[in-house]
């Protein structure tokens, strides 16, 4: 218990760092990944803006980034992080790599949720003469709402765990604390405390995500 109290300030800082990394990367996932997901859906063969070339290229890039083991992506992107935020160390630098990983991750989940929207509903909107922006906003995103929120929940939780790996390049965060004190210095108490914190955060995120998804779902 003593070691935890002694590290109180550091634990709080670690929580803040984790939150920063996760919120930056998840925001990037929503802001960039969602449009890519929509584009993937629209350009897929047999869909509204079917374009074999664009779909092929996008899909290939998404798969390419997603096939990197995260640790390797993290290291490979060190020069890129340095270019973007001026440093390769710290939560901000780690956020760059996390964002690069989160964007294609969420893009695929968005594409999948949009495919769940019944074709007939989209067709009815097309038949009514609705322009594309209304079909995207009023039909696709609205009908796929529960799936998009569930996908976001999955993304947040995955990236809480990815952010722990970011500790290895000096990214900080709770995962990093657990590794430095718990694993490398055999301080079991700190490790347990970190894990408990992570469990609580993940449970909370999942609970909120599931609740929001079910509230947004009017199909039943």
């Amino acid at each position: 218990m003593d070691s935890i109290l002694a590290l109180k300030a550091e634990i709080i800082r670690a929580i803040e760092q984790t939150c920063a990394m996760v919120s930056i990367s998840v925001s990037a996932a929503v802001i960039v990944g969602m449009p890519i997901g929509i584009l993937l859906f629209l350009t897929a063969p047999g869909h509204l803006r079917s374009n074999r070339l664009l779909y092929g290229v996008l899909s290939y890039i998404v798969n390419l980034v997603r096939s990197f083991p995260f640790l390797i992506l993290l290291v490979a992107l060190i020069p890129f992080s340095r270019m973007i935020v001026g440093t390769a160390i710290g939560p901000l630098a780690a956020s760059v790599s996390l964002s690069v990983a989160a964007i294609p991750f969420y893009a695929r989940l968005v594409e999948q949720s949009l495919r769940e929207v019944p074709k007939g509903v989209i067709e009815a909107a097309v038949a009514s003469g609705a322009p594309m922006k209304h079909i995207i906003g009023g039909v696709l995103l609205s009908e796929a709402r529960p799936g998009l929120v569930s996908g976001l929940t999955v993304t947040i939780i995955s990236f809480i765990s990815y952010s722990a790996a970011a500790g290895t390049v000096g990214g900080g965060g709770i995962g990093d604390l657990a590794i430095r004190y718990g694993y490398q210095r055999f301080d079991t108490e700190v490790m347990v405390a970190c894990i408990v914190i992570l469990v609580v955060i993940v449970q909370l995120v999942q609970w909120i995500g599931s609740f929001a998804a079910s509230r947004l779902d009017k199909r039943k």
């Binding site: 007939g120 009023g138 947004l216 009017k218 199909r219």
Partner: peptide, 11 residues
């Protein structure tokens, strides 16, 4: 246009 399965926005 109307359809057999209505095709309404369910949300």
């Amino acid at each position: 246009m109307i359809f057999q399965h209505y095709n309404l926005l369910s949300n």
